[in-house]
């Protein structure tokens, strides 16, 4: 009897896509604390506003961690705090884009300056996370629409990965041909994730998409290793300096990170498809 309850609880947890997305956002906001600390340290936090995303992501992660366990008991608290954090994250992301516009690219609009521009699209990570929180509160998680939105946001992330792996490795002159791998793999991720918005897809296609995402995760993990290896090798005063100015070790981890989000969307969509097939 007890075993059956446990199985039911696990099955309920597996169907709770909403919880997965909440955890995804929570962990990402926590990860952004370190990411922004490293990124803005490169600029030596030249402007006071550069501290805003650092403190915001920390506070937002804490707030979400507090309300997530009481999601069932106090749904209104969970909803309102989520909305507040979500909208603030959207605003932080958009404001970040505007502030990042003060970069070389907008002085001189060439491919070269684009390559070396401050990553003006990077703050959109906040916007994406904020939209996920809002989505989780406005759209029922057991619908096809919800799954599509999650896949769309994961797709946006992979578009970002494509652009950044292209421009970041262009900064390095694609010195090692292996630097093309994330460009190619994220192109395939985009190609496969875009299809559910253009055509009716079945379970088999969603499984193929899942396999494509597994490859993305591998690319990201290998990339993390290669970036870390490059940072250990390059000459600089300290390891922190090398991490700061060398290959960004966290960047490739965006791949497995987005695999998780895309996977949630695909899983939710496949459950919808499976349910529809049963009917």
């Amino acid at each position: 009897m007890g075993g059956r309850n446990r199985t039911d609880r696990l099955a309920a947890w597996a169907r709770d896509h909403q919880l997965w997305v909440e955890l995804f956002v929570l962990l990402n906001l926590g990860g952004l604390v370190l990411d922004i600390y490293l990124a803005h340290s490169q600029n030596q936090f030249r402007r006071a506003s550069e501290y805003v995303p650092l403190y915001f992501s920390l506070a937002a992660a804490v707030a979400l961690a507090i309300v997530l366990p009481v999601r069932r008991q106090w749904p209104a608290v969970w909803r309102d705090v989520g909305h507040l954090v979500g909208w603030l994250a959207v605003a932080t992301g958009l404001a970040g884009v505007v502030l990042h516009l003060d970069s070389r690219f907008f002085d001189e609009r060439t491919i070269r300056s684009l390559t070396y521009a401050a990553p003006f699209a990077a703050p959109l990570a906040f916007t994406g996370l904020g939209l996920l929180l809002i989505l989780n509160r406005l759209v029922a998680a057991d619908t096809t629409e919800w799954a599509h939105w999650v896949i769309l946001l994961a797709l946006g992330g992979f578009i970002g990965n494509f652009v950044f792996s292209l421009t970041d490795h262009a900064q390095n002159g694609f010195f090692n041909p292996i630097e093309w791998v994330p460009v190619v793999s994220s192109a395939f991720a985009i190609g496969f994730l875009i299809v559910p918005f253009a055509a009716e897809v079945g379970i088999a296609y969603l499984r193929l998409c899942g396999a494509i995402l597994v490859v993305q995760a591998l690319v990201g993990v290998i990339g993390f290793g290669l970036h870390a290896q490059a940072d250990f090798r390059q000459p600089a005063g300290s390891l922190f300096e090398r991490v700061l100015t060398g290959a960004p070790p966290m960047a490739p981890l965006l791949f497995p990170n987005l695999v998780v989000l895309g996977g949630i969307g695909l899983w939710a969509l496949s459950r919808q498809r499976a349910g529809r097939a049963r009917l």
């Binding site: 494509f162 192109a187 190609g191 055509a199 897809v201």
Partner: peptide, 21 residues
């Protein structure tokens, strides 16, 4: 599995790769 979605996915991916080059 239907061919159409796979075709679209490969075309989009390849177009992106070519544009990157």
């Amino acid at each position: 599995m239907a061919f159409r979605p796979v075709f679209i996915a490969v075309v989009v991916a390849f177009a992106l790769i070519v544009s990157a080059f």
